[in-house]
């Protein structure tokens, strides 16, 4: 069996930047037609679309709010109408609104839970029937090492990322009999725009806590997603794979 996604279709939420962008391009490298959703970065999203097309694959960039179930259903319907089926869903869209619990506003809490966790329910639910019709599928949800370990100043983010793991295991159990697999990838410290916002001091601490003593690259996360999306991982479901240079050991 070779690592090919030829003839498969994929949707990557939050695919215009960072890890999502890298995942979208990697799936296309291996032959998948790839759609991305994005919240606001129109130019970045169109650029990803062009890059995917340049690899000889079909591409779509859809502006979509991840928080509304109805919107997620619209996106999935558009894709299954145009591309007939959806084989791979990567729930990657996520934001941070860091603050200590004592200072965290209700809005900061709600925004992160809605964007990072509720969106996963929305897209995973919307894709369930098409994947059942298609006799299978692979869902990869992007969590974070913070969801396993917690992090001061990120209680909202950590809660959303831990919630993803519980949701994914439940989903995996509900749909295992229909050959729909659901797994989690939990990145550690990966260089992206999101981590660029972190203080220099925090970054040094993170590196100190990482046995491999370096930041990860978005492509290293994308390669793990690629494996879980492909048939090479056909007997893996409900699993969480850390991509963290050993940080979570």
């Amino acid at each position: 069996m070779s690592l090919s996604l030829k003839g498969k279709t994929a949707l990557v939420t939050g695919g215009s930047r960072g890890i999502g962008r890298s995942i979208a391009l990697t799936l296309a490298d291996y032959g998948a037609d790839v759609a991305i959703t994005f919240a606001s970065s129109v130019d970045a999203a169109n650029k990803v679309k062009e890059e995917i097309e340049a690899k000889g694959c079909k591409a779509k960039a859809i502006q979509a709010d991840a928080v509304k179930l109805e919107k997620a259903e619209e996106v999935i319907t558009e894709l299954t109408d145009d591309w007939e089926k959806l084989d791979i869903l990567v729930n990657n869209a996520g934001i941070t609104r860091d603050n200590l619990i004592l200072r965290m506003s209700e809005e900061q809490w709600d925004q992160v839970i809605d964007t990072n966790l509720k969106s996963i329910f929305n897209y995973s639910k919307a894709v369930a029937k098409p994947m059942m019709r298609n006799r299978g599928g692979s869902i990869i949800n992007i969590s974070s090492i913070v969801g396993l370990s917690g992090n001061a100043g990120q209680s909202n983010y950590a809660a959303s990322k831990a919630g993803i793991i519980g949701f994914t295991k439940s989903y995996a159990k509900e749909f295992a009999s229909r050959n729909i697999r659901a797994n989690v990838v939990a990145p550690g410290y990966i260089t992206t725009e999101m981590t660029d916002e972190l203080d220099e001091e925090i970054l040094e601490t993170i590196k100190d806590e990482t046995p491999m003593a370096r930041a990860g690259d978005a492509e290293e996360v994308a390669n793990t997603v690629l494996f879980l999306a492909s048939d090479l991982s056909s007997y893996i479901t409900g699993e969480t794979v850390r991509v963290d240079g050993g940080m979570g050991m």
């Binding site: 029937k129 059942m132 019709r133 509900e174 749909f175 009999s177 229909r178």
Partner: peptide, 11 residues
């Protein structure tokens, strides 16, 4: 039928 079978029947 299990719970997914009934959903599939409806589909």
């Amino acid at each position: 039928a299990d719970s997914l079978d009934t959903v599939e029947l409806i589909m």
